[in-house]
Nucleic acid binder design. Structure first.
Length: 851
RNA sequence: GCGAGAGUGGCGGAACUGGCAGACGCACUGGACUUAGGAUCCAGCGGGCAACCGUGGGGGUUCGAAUCCCCCCUCUCGCACCA
């Protein structure tokens, strides 16, 4: 009786073996080439989901493949363990965030182990562990010393539901990225990291990140948003004051007919004349109200108010009215804009609405604009008019000329402006890294001395969810003497944005137990940079930009010796599934749909569109159930086979079964022939069908190697192995060729090892190898076995396939040509025609042009 | 609006530098084995009776285009008054 493929038994057996042997433990070894493979670490939400399964399956293929190729592979795993869901759980279920988090970690660790991923578990870290965040606090103190961390009062995005500040990147369409509540503006004292100091370098280095997907680099470049222009001082008429504007269009300076200030501009009230003051104040108040809606509204009506004051255009002396305008932002440029209605669409609309002057200063080739009849602004190229000494100059040239002129006159200067703003890292949350600062009534904000780190997050707190952070109510934490003068002082109760933890964890993996500082230089110098980083595109801007920033900061602090953390990046697609719903019961879980009907009421279930798997839409598959039904190998195989890694994957139950069937097929074909292949060796010469099979074996090795290495085309690699297995099944002459068969079976098993390691390891052992797959290494293809003595050539007549001929492999063009012309079917299509031309592509095809 | 990416059978997807479109898998159809088949094995499977037609649509380059160029349509993602 044939032994059936028993995934559960095989998987637990090999997982135990790997654990026992510490098979994936990594140690520095100067004599071996290192390979650092990293997948983005998960937030311990409680259970792994299919996105994790996919992400980590992709990573594991690469890690195992590189290991088989002989690299010294570092493949760590850990937990991004601080964050709001832990607090939400505490509020909802009364479980302490620490307990909730550690229990989740324990469960998810078990789940990952059941997937058979090749992690070095000795390097596991959790960011909520004081042994980790202690060093984050130290890095903060160093940044503070360098002026890279500072405190300022500012308007921040405030989520009323989460009771916390959000970074700009965490605001999506005016809502909180986690809970979708309307974001409000609130003024608070906040800690900031000076990422703007690195804006230029972060931008420049995107051109060196050749291993990153272009879309991610484009998003980062857009986010940094560098623009070159001028700052220009406009004196206020009849006052000892001036307003500084930023513009990228200094070539249109002579066309400036008014000025727009942000309502929050410090001079806004100052410039309001007595008779205009009331109206100006009302406008400011209204915009502040409107502020939170600004980002959501598609077409905010452009509104403004005249302050009553005038500025003087420094180049032509024109008196221009100063307005406040709702579309001018305080935190971009200088918060003041010179308005050129003829050449800026927003200014155009504003001017039309308030009846302001228009002066055309750029005329494009072949057209003559008239300010009175223009229907929209002209933002294209042209030559300057009404621009004094610059008339007739091409506008691109004029940008240079006018910038120079302004500098000479001392009224303006060339500047570079970035859209990127400093990173606000303060969060009014409990479950995060405490910011190591003490506020003293006498000394101000005093850093906690290094020797007193870590500032431990107290665990004896009550989480009610009301009124901000529980740390502010924890007397023992809050009340401390000032480290400088000893007078009673108060601790900072804010914690860091959790993106701070994930900005340097990849480096800490090189030395997770190191006790003398954040990073052990020798270890990070050996392992870093990460050779391949894998994660979701949703982190394209935030996490990946912060991690790049931190790398540069740590470099400048002498803790790291590199400019960029991740040499190669793979952004994998989402896992999607069809949604189902019932008219009465709403969204349905897959198991609630039986024979196309809602299992609760029997009504037909409606099939919705394919969407990202999410609990709220119930279109989810539980990895635990998947594993218990099919095994981890099947789960891995399907996530790798169904789509290339960078594309979205459509989950499909039948597809999973297909993969399960394939593993059964592999299992059977090996076990059925164990006796036959015995200790057979590959014969020196093979002929006929055996030779064809052998050629396919080596062709498959080549294909899989090339598909996996660098290209990550796992789906086609797996397809190639499936073809090989089909060929083995179809191979008639097995009894006469045990050696060839043995090679074919062993190759199949070895090529599958990175994808489905458990079954591969088991079959390898059954084939009589005691040493394990890794000892055997990655198979090499034999170039001699690939050689074909004959080739099939496609023959086209006028570009259409009309026949096929077989020629010897090294046939010259003339021989091939003659063979093609001699083909009976080809001759039929050439009847009555004259051959005009014959194109021969050696070894591939012949195209006969005839008419 | 700007930027990026993508449109190929009933479905997921192959086709790497222009060279047999649809590999591989799913679904489906037929057959074998069988008490049974939702197991397994074998075969078929873009459309059309055919000549032929087929890679979102229309042009072009080429002996030859899914692939290169131009125009258009649709979808997805990112940014969205950035001066």
């Amino acid at each position: 009786m044939e032994e059936r493929y028993d995934a559960a038994a095989i998987e637990s057996k090999w997982q135990a073996t790997w654990e026992e042997q510490r098979a994936f433990q990594a140690t520095e070894d100067a004599g071996r080439q290192k390979y650092y493979l990293l997948e983005m670490f998960p937030y311990p939400s409680g259970r792994i989901h299919m996105g994790h399964v996919r992400n980590y399956s992709i990573g594991d293929v690469v890690a195992r493949f590189k290991r088989l190729q002989g690299f010294n592979v570092l493949h760590p795993m850990g937990w991004d363990a601080f964050g709001m869901p832990a607090e939400n759980a505490a509020i909802q279920h009364g479980t302490h965030p620490a307990r909730w988090t550690w229990e989740n970690i324990a469960h998810m660790r078990d789940q990952l182990k059941k997937m058979g991923f090749s992690y070095d578990w000795d390097r596991e870290l959790a960011t909520c562990d004081a042994a980790y965040y202690k060093w984050e606090q130290l890095i903060f103190l160093k940044m503070l010393e360098q002026g890279l961390a500072y405190r300022k009062s500012s308007f921040v995005n405030w989520c009323p539901t989460c009771q916390t500040v959000l970074a700009n990147e965490q605001v999506e369409n005016g809502g909180c990225w986690r809970c979708d509540s309307q974001v409000e503006q609130k003024e608070l004292d906040q800690w900031f990291f000076k990422i703007t100091d690195y804006a230029q370098e972060l931008l420049d280095d995107t051109w060196r990140l050749t291993g990153w997907p272009e879309p991610v680099l484009v998003m980062q470049r857009n986010w940094i948003g560098r623009s070159i222009g001028c700052e220009i001082d406009f004196p206020v008429a009849d006052r000892e004051l001036s307003v500084k504007v930023f513009t990228t269009r200094q070539d249109t300076l002579y066309g400036a007919t008014f000025m727009s200030l942000a309502p929050e501009h410090p001079l806004a009230l100052e410039l309001a004349t007595a008779e205009r003051r009331q109206e100006v104040e009302a406008f400011i108040a209204r915009v502040r109200q409107q502020d939170k809606l600004r980002r959501t509204s598609d077409d905010l009506v452009k509104e403004g108010v005249f302050t009553g004051s005038f500025c003087v255009n420094p180049v032509n002396g024109r008196r221009i009215p100063v307005f406040l305008a709702n579309f001018v932002l305080m935190d971009y440029g200088t918060g003041a804009v010179m308005a050129v209605p003829t050449h800026d669409q927003r200014d155009f609309e504003f001017a039309r609405k308030y009846g302001l002057d228009l002066v055309v200063v750029i005329q494009p080739e072949g057209e003559t604009f008239d300010a009175a009849t223009m229907t929209e602004a002209w933002t294209g190229p042209g030559r300057l008019v009404h621009s004094g000494p610059f008339d007739g100059v091409d506008n691109e040239q004029a940008k240079e000329d006018i910038a120079l002129y302004l500098e000479q006159q001392g009224v303006g200067r060339r500047t570079v402006n970035f859209r990127l703003r400093d990173w606000g890292v303060s969060r009014q949350r409990y479950w995060g890294t405490p910011i190591p600062i003490i506020y003293c009534p006498a000394c101000g904000a005093v850093p906690v001395p290094e020797a007193e780190l870590p500032v431990l997050l107290p665990e004896d707190v009550e989480i009610s969810g009301e009124g901000g952070s529980p740390l502010a109510r924890h007397a023992a934490f809050l009340n401390v003497p000032c480290p400088q003068c000893g007078t009673p002082a108060r601790r900072e109760t804010d914690t860091f944005d959790t993106f701070v933890e994930s900005s340097w964890y990849f480096a800490r993996y090189a030395c997770p137990q190191y006790g003398d500082g954040p990073l052990d230089r020798a270890a990070v110098d050996y392992w870093l940079p990460v050779d391949q980083y894998i994660g979701g595109v949703e982190h394209a801007v935030m996490h990946l930009l912060y991690a790049r920033f931190f790398t540069k900061v740590l470099r400048d602090l002498g803790m790291l010796g590199l400019d960029e953390p991740f040499s190669n990046l793979l952004t994998q697609g989402m896992v999607c599934m069809e949604t189902r719903s019932c008219p009465t019961h709403g969204w349905l879980f897959p198991e609630q749909v039986v024979d196309g009907q809602c299992s609760l009421c029997g009504q037909p279930a409606q099939v919705g569109r394919n969407e990202k798997m999410s609990k709220s839409k119930k279109n989810v598959v539980d990895p635990d159930q998947l594993i218990s039904r099919f095994g981890a190998d099947t789960a891995r195989l399907f996530s790798l086979f169904a789509a290339p890694p960078e594309k979205d994957l459509e989950w499909n139950e039948q597809g999973v079964e297909g993969c399960y069937r394939f593993l059964h097929r592999v299992w059977r074909v090996v076990l059925d022939h164990l006796e036959l292949v015995g200790a057979a060796t590959i014969p020196a010469r093979t002929e006929g069908e055996a030779r064809v099979l052998r050629r396919q074996v080596h062709r498959t090795i080549k294909k899989v190697t090339e598909d996996v290495d660098g290209r990550f085309h796992f789906n086609t690699a797996i397809a190639a192995v499936m073809e090989l297995v089909n060929a083995i099944y179809g191979f008639k002459d097995k009894p006469a060729n045990p050696g060839v068969l043995r090679e074919a079976l062993e190759t199949t098993v070895r090529l599958l090892a990175p994808f489905v390691p458990h079954i591969a390891e088991e079959l390898w052992a059954r084939l009589g190898h005691a040493g394990g797959l890794e000892a055997a290494g990655w198979p090499q293809w034999d170039a001699a076995a690939l050689v074909e003595e004959e080739k099939t050539i496609v023959v086209q007549v006028n570009g259409k396939v009309r026949g096929k001929v077989t020629v010897v492999a090294d046939a010259d063009d003339e021989v091939t040509r003659q063979a093609a012309l001699a083909d009976a079917n080809v001759a039929r299509f050439l009847e009555g025609k004259t051959v005009r031309k014959v194109v021969v592509v050696p070894g591939r095809l012949v195209n006969i042009v005839a008419s």
